[in-house]
Design a protein around this nucleic acid. Structure first.
Lengths: 200, 200
DNA sequence: GGAATAACCATACGGCGGTATGGCTACGAG
DNA sequence: CTCGTAGCCATACCGCCGTATGGTTATTCC
């Protein structure tokens, strides 16, 4: 059902996610949807939680793979952040859903809590990466991890918005996607100027 | 009327901006609203345009003042970008309205056009500032103005979101607002490392 | 086996939102 | 003067949406 919600929002916006539409899309009756969710709010909140959870999980898998391969933290973070950009149809849909819920979060406290928790999760992971970078030598000791993490998440968020809005607008010769990646890579390089001692 | 729409959205979200509510808030009858706007879409689009226009105008005024005072471009841009952050109640309301419409822009092409034009305006102004900075010596000649402008707008956007979401979350000892300003100032300082020749 | 609980459905209901309709005043142009 | 147009209003209409209701079929547990 949550997937039906996802599909509907990704395709026609939040307003298209009506009870009847969700039931139809999922192949169930309206009554069944009601059987599992007391109210529409509950359904939407559940769907939101599921979607963000699956996003976070996907990123976690990717970063875990990077760690296992012994990549520099800088590269792992870049891959993880790039995953958050709407670079293909699936992620464009995801971005649309995510933004729809973030807008909704401005009116619905429960949704705001999910949004906040998700954001905290991401910045937390990044800050952890920076701290780890200090220990292994990729990051200068004096670097403020929390501040850097906030900057990176904000930057990624903003780039994602722009990429969604104008996927084909090129910047300085580069495609939009390339420009976004270049900007992220540049900032990460600035934040992680060193090499990890373990592979020196 | 557009102001009524603004107030309603800022206070209770986009869904609260119904024809009846707008009429009531503006002190008119529903019929009058219909008299001026053929449809609700038209009303909302008009309100969106007005709101973004007034925002851009406000920023233009501020930057013009900075120019008149002979401030370095770096400082002018910082002031301008800070104006885009939801740092007080009024701007929090504005941000809410703006985000509501941006979400709507994902479904309504006309709204998307407004959003795109606004974004283009802002990045354009910043890119212009960077170019000017090259001429006056604040910016290194090799700097890519377009890329820097995209980065700054994306960063500001993301910081605005975060600031709205968690206005009281402090970062590394700083308040959220201070952290956002510090991040912006830092990036601007990196992009505009030099001093303007005219005041050397 | 049978009762209780869960899965599942069709449909009715009440409300509300956007739009349509018809009418009333005022006023400036011809 | 009067006619047309703009400003303005109350209300009716219709459709849609969330939810409530009452029921039927499975499943599970004593």
């Amino acid at each position: 059902m949550a997937e039906a919600v996802h599909r509907l929002i990704a395709h026609d916006g939040l307003d298209a996610a009506t009870m009847a539409a969700v039931a139809r899309e999922a192949g169930f009756s309206v009554g069944l949807v009601q059987h599992y969710f007391k109210s529409k709010d509950e359904l939407l909140l559940f769907a939101y939680q599921r979607i963000t959870a699956s996003l976070l999980e996907r990123v976690a898998t990717i970063t875990a793979r990077g760690e296992a391969a012994g990549q520099p933290i800088r590269d792992i973070l870049l891959t993880g952040l790039k995953e958050l950009l709407p670079l293909d149809a699936a992620r464009r849909g995801e971005h649309r859903v995510s933004r729809a819920f973030q807008a909704r979060a401005m009116d619905v406290p429960a949704a705001a809590a999910v949004a906040e928790a998700t954001a905290a999760m991401i910045t937390g992971k990044i800050a952890q990466g920076v701290e780890n970078g200090k220990e292994c030598g990729e990051v200068e000791p004096g670097t403020d991890a929390a501040l850097g993490a906030v900057e990176l998440t904000a930057l990624t968020d903003g780039l994602a918005d722009r990429l969604y809005r104008e996927p084909d607008r090129s910047v300085a010769g580069r495609s939009g996607a390339e420009a976004a990646e270049a900007i992220l890579a540049d900032r990460l390089a600035a934040l992680f100027p060193g090499e990890c001692r373990h592979y020196a």
